[in-house]
Nucleic acid binder design. Structure first.
Lengths: 238, 238
DNA sequence: CATCCGACATACCGCAAGTACGTACTTTGA
DNA sequence: TCAAAGTACGTACTTGCGGTATGTCGGATG
């Protein structure tokens, strides 16, 4: 015998969840949606909780029931934005036949993501200050940075030249920083498309250069590695 | 630098300014000194103006007479910290005979600066959020980034191969981002000294790689895009 | 159907940034 | 030399906002 299913009004069906849980989930989503918009538009400090709860058509009671405070709400928004970005990049990384093509596609995706206002404002600009640098980095560590590490590893280690793991991580971090900074220059360039091209070829150049050096097994011009470190004294003038 | 000793403002003979101007300058310096300490220790949001003016032994009236608000005060602190760092790096860049040594020395100085709490907190962590990314970047543009641009130019263009100016800037920005990110990893590493060594050799690798590619006359723009670079086949996993 | 508890709403508190205004000292001009 | 003027503050207050304490309503549950 078939049981009549009570029709739930408009609330997205969170399967298996109770009626109230669905309402609550909807409320949380509304809060995060509005918060994301306001944090993007006004920044963390500029977006008041009153404005957020008003936009979500709830009250501060609801907000504080679901989140411990403003920072926790920001964290939820941050994770969603960062997660979306990471997944988009990861998806792009899977397209392409060889490591180079994958790297190129991934870089493209990254350069596009970094141009989006919400990513720039929430992740890049406000993220470190609000979450603290430590928390900010450990978040990136297991999302976007992980992607970069993967691709750097596949490109630099493809030939099977043993490359020290720590060194690989160092390279990955360097490339990650390079991409972040380059992405910012792309986002604020007069002609983002051209800037993106330049960035892409420049990074490709770096990768290719390293690869060729490793390949040739050269000792390379390491004036860099072997020399005395001069001590720079601080001049305290004012 | 916690100075709690009651101090009569010195009127340096070099300053031909009036008596009152000297007092005012002393007040400003006291404010910035204390603000720098508190911003470093507690962060921008965590440091209250009441605490700052109390530390400087003045009142908010004095603060608002000299600065338009908290942000303006932070800006003054920011500029001093950034300026100091930039000058230290610039000084290090002048030591060494060839471009490579200079680059190495400059990088060393940078890696040391980026480990200092005040620089990490005020410039890296809170800077972008408080000043806004635009303002933050234009500040770095004419200080630290300018140094990087100089050294990248001298290293990559030492041979006299003409390198497109925009491309040079792109490289410089990439290296700047690479150094920033790498510096952060150095600062939070278990063994900063070893991490610094790895970063130095990695960056040296990148520079050398680019140099060798340019030397060998590889075509720059499409190296990455068209996948003409020497590539070793590997078995793709999917 | 009685009870409970989760999911909110309302009212209020305290802190911190910013402002209005008063005042003493210092320079300046006749 | 002396008063007018303006700088360099100090004091007291307002305001906005994050956070909290507490009340309440309706779906869930036995």
């Amino acid at each position: 015998m078939s049981k009549l299913v009570p029709k739930v009004p408009k609330v997205p069906s969170v399967t298996g969840a109770s009626r109230r849980a669905a309402y609550a989930a909807s409320t949380r989503k509304a809060l995060i949606d509005v918060a994301e918009d306001l944090f993007t538009a006004k920044g963390y400090a500029g977006a008041s909780l009153d404005a957020i709860v008003a936009g979500a058509r709830v009250t501060k009671g609801a907000l504080y029931h679901h989140y411990s405070g403003k920072q926790a709400l920001f964290e939820a928004v941050f994770e969603r934005v960062e997660g979306d970005a990471s997944r988009r990049i990861q998806k792009a990384l899977r397209t392409g036949k060889d490591p180079w093509k994958k790297a190129s596609n991934g870089l493209r995706a990254f350069l596009e993501v970094v141009q989006e206002p919400r990513y720039r404002r929430i992740v890049i600009q406000d993220g470190p200050a609000v979450l603290g640098y430590e928390r900010f980095r450990e978040q990136e560590e297991r999302s976007t940075f992980a992607n970069v590490l993967d691709i750097v590893r596949s490109v630099l280690d493809a030939g099977g030249w043993g490359l020290d793991e720590q060194m690989l991580q160092t390279f990955a971090r360097i490339f990650f920083g390079a991409m972040s900074s380059a992405g910012e220059s792309v986002a604020s360039a007069d002609e983002p498309a051209e800037a993106a091209d330049r960035v892409e070829s420049a990074i490709g150049f770096l990768l290719a250069g390293v690869q060729s050096l490793i390949e040739s097994g050269s000792e390379l011009p390491n004036a860099f590695l072997t020399h005395e470190i001069p001590v720079v004294e601080i001049d305290a003038e004012d």
